[in-house]
Design a protein around this nucleic acid. Structure first.
Lengths: 208, 208, 208, 208
DNA sequence: CATGAATGAGACTTCATTCAT
DNA sequence: CATGAATGAAGTCTCATTCAT
C-alpha cells in the first residue's frame, strides 16, 4: 500500500512535466526555420508556430534567439565529439578506416537532419557563441588527432598541414551537404559519400 | 581675387566628394562592411560613411541593399570567368597546369581582397540573386569543362563525379580563404595554396 | 505505522504551505516588492515567490495586479480612519494635541512599514481605484474636521484654506517618509517628527 | 559679393536643419503624455503622434524612452537653478523675500506647464537618472543655502533642520501642484500660493 | 485550494528607403 | 547628381493572466 501511494505520487509529479519534450520540439523547429530563411530572417513567431507552441514559450526554454542557434550547435558538436571519441578508441580500425568513420559520422548526422547542414553552412560562423565554438574546436581537435595518428603510423602524408587539411575537408563536406540539402535530387547521398572518401583518401594517402 | 576665393571655396567643397568612380567606392566599402558585420547587420548608413558618400547617394547607384551584394558577386564571377577562359584557351598548358591555374586564379583574386572571401563564405548562398547566380554558374561550368577535358585526356580520374568534385573543392577553398581572411596569421597564404594543390591533385590524379 | 508514515508524509507536504493567512502574506510581499521596484516593474511572479506561494495563487485572493495595490491602500486608509476617529472623539485632548496625534498616527503606521511610505509616494495617485480613493477621502475628511474644529475653537488660523493645508501637509509628510524609507540613516525618525510638528504649528519664522 | 555668397551659403545650410524645433516639440509632447498616462503607460508612438512626428524620429533626438524623461528634468532643474541663483544674488531682498521668491519661482514654472507638476510628482523619483539627479541636488542645495542664510541673519528659526524643512516643503508644494494640475478648478493657484507662503512662514497656529 | 507551465498581446526600437532641399 | 533628416513597418521579448492537473 505504501509503495503504491508513493508510486502514484511520483506519477502525479511526472505528469506535471510536459510529456512531449517541448524544448526538443522547439530546437527541431528552429533548425527547420533557420534552414529555410536563414538566422536573421527567421521569425520567432514562425519557429513557435512550427513547433506547435506559443511565441512566449520559446523564452521559457531559451534566453533569446541567439541562444536558440547556439544550443543547436552545442548539441551537434557534443554529439559528434562523443561519437568520434568512440571511433578513436576502437582498436580494430586502422587510420584509414577511422578517417572514413569520421566522414561517415558527419554524413550520418546530417543525413538525419539535412536542414542542419544548411544552417551550419550559412549561419554558423557569423552567429556562433564562445560556448558553441568551444565544443566545435574540441570536436575538430579530436579529428586532427586522428589525422596525426595516421601520420605517425606512416599511413597519411606527413607533408600535409593538418590544420589546412581540416579546414579544407570541413569546408568541402559542408558545402556538399549544403548543396545536397537544398537540392537532394541532383545527386544521391551515397554517391557523394563515396566520391568524397575517394578524393580525401587519394589526397592524403602516401602513394607508393 | 574674388573669383579666386570663390574657386578655392568650391574646391574645398568638392574635395569632400571623391574624384573617382563613386559606384566603385560604394562597392568597395560594401564589401568591407559586409565582411565585418555580415550582410544583415551591415547598415547602409555605415557603408555610405565608409565610402565617403551620403546615405541617400547609395540609392543613386543601387536599387537597394540586395543589389549591392548582387553586384559585388556579378563583378566577381564575371572577372573569374574571363580569366578562366584565358587559361582554358591556352595551348601551352596541360590539364594539370590548367587546374592549378584555376586555383591560382581564385587565390589571386581573394588575396587582393580578403574581405570578399568572408562575404562569399557567409552571405553568398543566402542572399544571391538570379543574375549573380547565373554568372556564378557560368564560371563553375567553365571550371567543370576544364576537369572534363582532363578526364578525356586520361589525366584525371574518370570515376570522380565532376559536380561533386566541384562543390567539394569550392567549399574547401572558400572555407580556407574565409579562415585565412579572419585570421591571416595562423598560416601563410602560399602554404595554403601549396597544400591545397597537393590535396586536390593527389586526390584526382590517376595514380600509376 | 502505515498511517503514521502517511501522516508524516502529508505533514511534510503541508509544511510547504503557510500556516497563517496567505492573503496577508501576499499583501505584505506585494508592499515590499512594490516599494523595491515600483508598481509597474513589480512582477507578479516575484511577489508570489517573496510570499512563498505559487504565481497562480495570487489570483485566488486578488482579481489582478491592480487590486493588489488597491487593497493595500484600502486597508491602510481604513486603519488610519479608525484610529483618527478614536483620537477625534477623545475629550481630554485640545485641538493642538489632536493635530499632533494625527501626525503621530501617520508616523507610527509608516514606521511599522516603511515600504508603505515609498509605495504611497510613488504609486498611489497613478494606480489608485475608486474604492481605495473613497477610503482615502473619508480619512482625509476626518482630518479636515479636526482642523475645522480647531479653527472654530480659535486655536487655528481661520484664514488658512483647509483643503490646501491638508494637501500641503500630506505631501510634505509623505515626501519625508519616502526619503526616510529610502535612506533611513540620513535623519532619525523622531527628529523628523519633532521638526514636522514644529513647522506645521509654527512655520519657519522666529516668533517675537 | 563675397559676403553675399557666404551668407546665401549659410542660409542654404540652415534651411536643411529643421525650422520648427523638433526636439522641443517632442519634449513638450512627452511631458503631456507622461502626465496623462504616467511614464510606463506612455507609448512612444503616442508621444510621436502628439508631437506631429513619426515614431522613429523620436530616436533621432533621444537615445530611448528613459532619456526622454531624464532630459525633461535636466532642463527643468537647470532652469530652476539658474533663476534661483538670480534671486540669491540680489541684494535688495531680505531672507523672507528670497524664500517667497523661491516659492514664486517654482509656482511660475509649473504654472506655465502644469503637466510637469504631475510628471514630477508621479514619476521623478522612480525614473530619474544620475545626471538628472545631479542637477536636482544642485538646485536643492542652492535652496538650502537660502534658508541657512536666513538662519544666520536670525530671521529663520535655527532649531529647524534644514534638510527636513526642504523635503517637507518640496513634498508639500509638489503635492499641491499635482492636485491643482489634475483638478485646477478646485482652487485657484494664487490662493494656493498665498496660503502656502503663509503656512511656510507662520505655521497653522494663531500667533498671539 | 494550490500549482506553475503555457499563453499571446503589445511596446520599444532599428534601419532600409524616401524625398524635399 | 547629392544630401541626410524623416519615415514607419516589423520583430524580439516581457509578463499579467489562465487553466489543466
Amino acid at each position: 500500500m505504501l509503495f503504491l501511494n508513493i508510486d502514484s505520487f511520483k506519477i502525479t509529479i511526472n505528469m506535471r512535466t510536459r510529456e512531449g519534450n517541448k524544448e526538443k520540439d522547439i530546437l527541431k523547429s528552429a533548425i527547420e526555420v533557420f534552414a529555410q530563411t536563414g538566422y536573421h530572417d527567421a521569425k520567432i513567431s514562425r519557429i513557435a508556430e512550427n513547433a506547435g507552441v506559443a511565441t512566449g514559450s520559446i523564452y521559457l526554454y531559451f534566453k533569446n534567439k541567439e541562444e536558440l542557434l547556439a544550443r543547436i550547435f552545442e548539441t551537434l558538436w557534443e554529439k559528434l565529439y562523443c561519437e568520434l571519441n568512440a571511433i578513436q578508441t576502437r582498436t580494430d580500425l586502422n587510420s584509414i578506416e577511422k578517417l572514413e568513420g569520421l566522414l561517415d559520422l558527419i554524413f550520418d548526422i546530417f543525413t538525419d537532419n539535412p536542414a542542419l547542414a544548411t544552417v551550419f553552412a550559412n549561419d554558423y560562423y557569423r552567429h556562433t557563441t564562445k560556448v558553441a565554438d568551444h565544443y566545435f574546436n574540441v570536436f575538430l581537435q579530436a579529428g586532427e588527432e586522428l589525422i596525426v595518428e595516421g601520420i605517425n603510423k606512416k599511413v597519411f602524408n606527413p607533408n600535409i598541414n593538418v590544420l589546412i587539411f581540416r579546414h579544407f575537408v570541413l569546408g568541402g563536406v559542408s558545402n556538399l551537404l549544403h548543396q545536397w540539402a537544398d537540392n537532394p535530387k541532383d545527386f544521391p547521398l551515397n554517391v557523394i559519400r563515396q566520391n568524397l572518401k575517394f578524393i580525401v583518401k587519394r589526397g592524403i594517402l602516401i602513394v607508393q
